[in-house]
Nucleic acid binder design. Sequence first.
DNA 1: GCCATTAGTATCGACTCGCTACTATATCAA
DNA 2: TTGATATAGTAGCGAGTCGATACTAATGGC
Lengths: 180, 180
Amino acid sequence: MKPDHGIRILINRLARIDSAAGWAGGLNPTQRAALEYLSEANQFSRSPSHVADYLGTTRGTMSQTLKALVRKGYAAEHRQKSDQRSISYELTEAGAAAVTEPNPIADAIGSLPASVQAALKEGLLQSLRLALAANGGQSFGKCKTCAYHDAASESGFCTLLGLGLEPGESDKICVEHKEA
Amino acid sequence: MKPDHGIRILINRLARIDSAAGWAGGLNPTQRAALEYLSEANQFSRSPSHVADYLGTTRGTMSQTLKALVRKGYAAEHRQKSDQRSISYELTEAGAAAVTEPNPIADAIGSLPASVQAALKEGLLQSLRLALAANGGQSFGKCKTCAYHDAASESGFCTLLGLGLEPGESDKICVEHKEA
DNA sequence: GCCATTAGTATCGACTCGCTACTATATCAA
DNA sequence: TTGATATAGTAGCGAGTCGATACTAATGGC
């Protein structure tokens, strides 16, 4: 039987229309998506490999994209002490400002009834979970919903890495995330 | 206030993951999206301009993309008699086959409960309508839901163009569509 | 017949994309 | 300790999208 591509095509079309609006500030849509991920990810999850996994592209492409962001002043490289091979990118002030800019698609969605928004988000999340499971991908959830998260200490503690979290970091995305 | 980009980012991420799977058969994701549109649009709606409007890109880019599809044997050009400037593209057999191929994201969505799928589709459609209205874009609906559609005759009649429709065409997308 | 409009295209520079090949660091085992 | 192997990041290739601009050709109004 012919598969029903209807919803998939709707998602792609919305993303495409959003892309057309994503060229603001000298950025292109991919660079903007990477920037948005960096703003949501914790310090252990901001390497080229991680961003590539999250966005479904390759290390090579993402390496170039991140270097472009640095060149444009939206991000900065930061070599890790623990593993000299890996690099953690972080947003500059300009980068942090760019991700909060208004956006027509976000506005359109925001003006929908709350119940419709909730149903939409739930449907998208379930689709994403299934798609990632089929791909063998990671969940990329937030620390506070993670099985390794210990909320007892001051600003949270990661029992997997044996490290304390920075303030506010329990609300960030982590590559090691495992649903509690 | 900082806008909530959550749902927008989910949509983009799903589209991005889908894109990675969209390289099958020597096509790239954009070429596939154009092919999918051509398979759903009626004979008056398959020009470079129309596909560009539908997918939110420019005539120049879409012109190149459609020529690539012809070069690869998935589509064919067809000059209109009425207006010698415009071109209508149509799918070849290979093109028609390519749009029915299975797809991991479509499968994931298809395996969700019917109620979740319905809510998802409804939320996406409402978002799309608002986004298009904000952009001044067309609705691109199907003939059978159009104010100009007269279902009395054999296979439908377009009262705007004053033309009879081909069999099955009332289920196709039209640029001139106006919600009844 | 003139002129503004429209449809399609060619070309430019920047960039993504998958891919392959390479370097440097890290890890593990004999 | 010394390989052997895996991992992180990158450079470079060819194809092609993308916005932008500048063109040609056909159309339609006046």
